[in-house]
Design a protein around this nucleic acid. Sequence first.
DNA 1: CTGAAAGCGCTAACAG
DNA 2: CTGTTAGCGCTTTCAG
Lengths: 330, 330
Amino acid sequence: MNITEFARIAGVSKAAVSRFFNDGYLSDEKYARIARAVEETGYAPSAQAQTLRTRRTRQVGVILPKLSGESTARVVEGISRVLDAQGYLLLLANTYNDPQREVRYLELFRENHVDGIIFLASIFTPAHEEVLQNIRIPLVIVGQEYPGAHCVYHDDYGAAYALTELLLARGCRRPAYIGVTIEDRAAGQARREGFVRALAAHDLSPNPNLMRVSKFRMDAGYAQMQLLLEKGLRPDGLLCATDNIAIGAMQCCREHGVRIPEDLLLAAIGDNDLGRVCATPLTSAHLHYHTSGEQAASTLLHLLHKDKGATGSTELPFEIIERTSTAPKN
Amino acid sequence: MNITEFARIAGVSKAAVSRFFNDGYLSDEKYARIARAVEETGYAPSAQAQTLRTRRTRQVGVILPKLSGESTARVVEGISRVLDAQGYLLLLANTYNDPQREVRYLELFRENHVDGIIFLASIFTPAHEEVLQNIRIPLVIVGQEYPGAHCVYHDDYGAAYALTELLLARGCRRPAYIGVTIEDRAAGQARREGFVRALAAHDLSPNPNLMRVSKFRMDAGYAQMQLLLEKGLRPDGLLCATDNIAIGAMQCCREHGVRIPEDLLLAAIGDNDLGRVCATPLTSAHLHYHTSGEQAASTLLHLLHKDKGATGSTELPFEIIERTSTAPKN
DNA sequence: CTGAAAGCGCTAACAG
DNA sequence: CTGTTAGCGCTTTCAG
């Protein structure tokens, strides 16, 4: 059923039908006639044909490294919440952290004429830089600060700094750190920096042997902790860049008879469900992932409506949630 | 840039350009000319305009209750994996389990002319039934068995049955069950049935006081366990419909001095990360969520290609993963 | 192998 | 307030 056929059935002109669906001038009588015909036939205009005319799809593309993973899911949930309410549909692109895929999706989104793009970023390669330069579609970056773009990100530096101070305050003297690649400016570099600078503020300098780099997964955290233990460098405190890494480290400790918090104070960033539930509940910096999704979406909406006002970048705060893993050394 | 302008730049006709992008007849010379022009201009055809002609969007709609939640995320990850590879884009609809929203999205998907729909279902209301009857878009249901539809689901009954037998084999004599609403045929009814029938097979009849209904969340599991404990009906084994519920129950037990597995054997269904990591690692039936997503997607692809062959419904098996929470009573 | 031309379903001037 | 009309960018006969 198309607009022509429907107009015939309703006994009005195509233009009247179009006006019905687009809030144009319409007499009450025609309005009623059309409303009834819609009821009866279930007619709805074709989104594609509308797009062809209006240049608007009411679709927003979301690019993310992987869906499973609590933080990503929360961000998308937040995005979905606000975009839904405005009648936008979400186009999802799972990239598995593969820059080639990210670029391909940016391309695909362009071909599909999405109204805007939200990019959950982790690492920026030269390929990214180039695409991001040339993209003409309104875009918001989540989780990273990227000069010249509209961004929503967390206070990664501050969270790491605060947790490190907490560790020290609880009696830690030989702090260790398990982070992620510094190619990730937010989760890698900024958090590491927070750790290092907090130590410096207490006249401590980080022991390079106690600074490790891990992947984002639990098993990787486990492996790095094992390395630390095997080398016999007994740290008495550990900050991990993510909860998952910390949980892995915690399991390693348990298997090696290292008690938390008695022998090792442990803290991490992210505050996911795992940390609340695990053997020794984990002290963590809560990051507002859901909020960051909402914020990104509403920034994008402003962009789409050309409100010069409420755009720009946003840094979200964190909250330290102290649990058993940093209980004081009595 | 549109096809007309591009054709002019490339020095060929519109038809030639169209053939270039659709593998039509084309001389090598024109092919090369167009290829070079694409390289230079970055031209790509508009997906919407193509759709208007071809009636295909290469978009698949996915309807789900909520994104956060390990199982859902895994299913979508699986869907994404196989659909990506075929050049389909995912349109995501988060319904918060609100039937009205589900119906609205089905509508929205129709307007957007998605090629197919994958529906992660939980409960079927009359509103669902009606929409599902009338939908003319190829559709696959995940997680539930629905007569007359193409479905991919898990052996919920079998998993519950097997775990109940395990509990009994480990010495459980007064088994309790915390499930979810039986309106959910899969997670509610089938799992409950598995529990009851396994007891019957061992000449036990379930104590109605030991059968509880919970929401899907941890705190709800906690609350139901508390009720069980407060009534003084000390069960010595507990099967929960989901891991999350079990984790909540576990926390309640810990706070009330009930030891797992010494005082209470505990098992659940789903095998998520939480159960692996929590204080007492949880015995659980692993369900292949990722696989179910992949399976649903490939069933849909067959539908789209009108392969009569590989469609129909699929039941996926489970695997019992035994952990500390059901360690034998000495 | 190639190009001209006819729409796909809709919206937005424009002239009433 | 209303209808007519000219495209939006593309694919696909059809006749070379």
